[in-house]
Each structure stands twice: as C-alpha cells, then as structure tokens.
Amino acid sequence: MSARGKILGSIRAAQGKPAEAAAEERERVRAHLAARPANARPAPPRDLRAEFRSRALALSSTLDDIAAMSAAPQAVAAFLTRNALPLTAVCWPELDDLDWAAAGLHVAARTARDGDLVGITGAYCGIAETGTLMLLSTPRAPATVSLVPETHIALLRAGRIVSGMEEAWKLLRSEMPALPRAVNFVSGPSRTADIEQTVTLGAHGPYRVHIVLVGS
C-alpha cells in the first residue's frame, strides 16, 4: 500500500471510521469549504484610512498622500530625493504607463534583479487592521519587485483599503477566478530579531517600505 493510503487509512482507523469515507461525510466537508463560515474577530476599525495609516507607521512603513495616480512619479521622486536614494528603479509592468521620466526617474518595467535598489509596485488592497499591503503576483505584477531591492515603494488606492484579511479574501474571490501563484501580505520593511532579540530592519528584503496613498 502507498504511504498515502497508509497515512489516511491509519487516521480513519484511529478515529474509528470505516476505511472508505461515506458520500455524506465527504459532502459535509465540501459544504464547509464552500460555506466558509465566519469566525469570531475583533470589531472592525471605524475609519479605515486612519487605522491603516497608524498601523503602517507603527510597523516602520512611511506614508505619503497624493490626489491622483498621475502625481505618483513626482511623489516617488520627492521621496527618493528626500532620503538621498538613487533615482533609478524597477516597477511593475502594470505601472509602465505612468510618466516616470517626466519626474526625473529612470524606471524599468520588469522583474527585479540583484543590484536593483528601488522597486515600485502597486498593491491589490490594503488591510486597515494591521497596516498591511496585499500583493498578488501576476505577469504584470512580479513579486520580486517588492522583495529584491533595498527600497520598496507601493502605490495604494485609498479606496482599496479594507477592514481585515477576511475582506481582502472576499475581494479577491469576487475579482479573480483563483488565487494567483503568490499572495504576499507585506507589513513594513523586512526585519530580524535573531541576534540578542534586537530588532534590525532590512534582513533579506527591503530596508524601507514607503506607501503612497492615492485619492481620498
């Protein structure tokens, strides 16, 4: 018998169930997966944007507000200049339409490679409860752009801030046929506290995460 058969068989035997699951037993499990019942959760924040902001700041992200997406290149250039960071970056192909050059930036739309110092991404949505960005990997939104460079800048439409992770999943199910290969929830710059329990920013991922909130 295969390892699979032995493992699943011994689980059923240990629970005093017949070797083969009855149709109604399977149906119950499938029904539960289809129904996805809600679990207890904390009260949702009243002001999603304010909560997102304060949570993101608490996790060492920084934030800027702009009125419209067309202002993003200027805001990104200002942030990079302010922090004495290079004006050369990679961005999601999805963001290639923005006029980066007009803001004095050299931006390549592609996956990130070693040596890329600044990565500019969008965000599928934001989660107010934890100040988290939800990023989906697609051909036009490669995951490496938010991971490999030392600086990650994310453009997030304020209207896409949802209450909790439950709402983020709900949004995803309503808009996408299935989960993309990678769903990454990003909550601030990468960090480690492995040496002497001392928090250090910038372990293997970005040293800084800057969120540009777009619109009201």
């Binding site: 949570r55 993309p180 990678a182 990454n184 909550s187 990468s190």
Partner: peptide
C-alpha cells in the same frame, strides 16, 4: 507582533506569461 512582516501564500507553479516563480 500584530502580524509578521510577510505572510506568503503560494499556490501552484509559475503561471502562463510569468517570468518568475
């Protein structure tokens, strides 16, 4: 921590048109 820096959910292999993964 309220949340870890990264929560990564991976499903399946590199999709059509993807240049990574």
């Amino acid at each position: 921590q309220t949340i870890t820096n990264y929560v990564s959910v991976t499903t399946g292999i590199r999709g059509a048109g993807e240049s990574e993964g």
